[in-house]
């Protein structure tokens, strides 16, 4: 019963935080330095790891698809399989998982330590709402950077698949043929759906991690507990939202 109450409290406080942060949107232009800093943290520093992971996901997809599709002479369709899988599902989901692990944990740790060491209380006494300067710039930055990360994940995944398809003896498909099939079976809506998913996942991750960080109580041990909680909740949220967003976009 206590756990259900805690979950409901968490949902309630997250929604409250969202509305509070949204109410300060007009101040975003004055906070552009913080916004740019968060774009750098969320986007630029996450980019290399997203690219590396997406390359190997695209590669593995091509390898597995090549192995099974060769059996019934359909290996020329590998491009469409990798393309659609990356754009509609794996690109946004993997970018979101990396965001949760890398950025979400950092946000939860920073805000939790600010809360534990009374920096958040100091902001409140200075009549500077934490939702305004700690949450809003992060939410705005993730809305801008998440589609960029998802597009890069898609592109790098596609190229990973193309390279493996060319240089794996059992597949041996030229990049021209690979991309030709990819283009033929994909429409813009496939990419757009993936970008919408990425946007929803990224926004939810940052909001939840901010809320968990700001609701930390206790000492240094609770900072670690908050980081763990933020990452676990984010990962669960990504998969739950994935189902509902996919269904909504069908």
């Amino acid at each position: 019963m206590n756990q259900i109450t805690a979950i409901l409290e968490g949902i309630g406080s997250t929604i409250q935080l969202l509305f509070r942060a949204a109410s300060y949107t007009p101040s975003l232009w004055r906070q552009r330095a913080r916004f740019i800093d968060q774009c750098y943290q969320i986007g630029y520093t996450t980019l290399p790891i997203v690219a590396i992971l997406s390359f190997f996901i695209g590669s593995v997809l091509a390898l597995q698809a090549g192995y099974s599709m060769s059996n019934f002479g359909a290996k020329q369709f590998i491009g469409s399989l990798v393309g659609l899988s990356m754009a509609r599902e794996l690109g946004p989901v993997m970018a979101a998982i990396l965001l949760a692990g890398r950025v979400g944990s950092a946000i939860a740790a920073e805000l939790a330590s600010m809360k534990v060491y009374q920096e958040v209380d100091a902001l409140v006494t200075m009549n500077i709402p934490p939702a305004k300067i700690l949450v809003l710039p992060r939410l705005a930055a993730v809305l801008v950077m998440m589609p960029v990360l998802a597009i890069i994940a898609d592109l790098v995944g596609w190229f990973g698949g193309a390279i493996i398809s060319k240089y794996t003896q059992s597949i041996a498909i030229e990049p021209e043929a690979y991309f030709s099939v990819l283009r033929r079976f994909m429409v813009f809506k496939d990419v757009l759906n993936g970008l919408i998913k990425a946007e929803v996942f990224g926004f939810a991750i940052v909001l939840v991690c901010c809320n968990i960080g700001l609701n930390t109580r206790g000492g240094p041990r609770e900072i670690g507990a908050s980081v763990t909680k933020a990452v676990v909740v984010s990962l669960i949220l990504i998969l739950v939202l994935d189902y509902f967003v996919t269904k909504a976009l069908m």
């Binding site: 060491y117 009374q118 920096e119 209380d121 200075m126 009549n127 300067i133």
Partner: peptide, 28 residues
Amino acid sequence: HMALVFQAGALFNSLSVYDNLALYPREH
């Protein structure tokens, strides 16, 4: 206008001393 001086200072560790002091007048 109320100001609380916290026991441990509660200074913003990510900001310099100057920026700690300038935060309030800048935000307001």
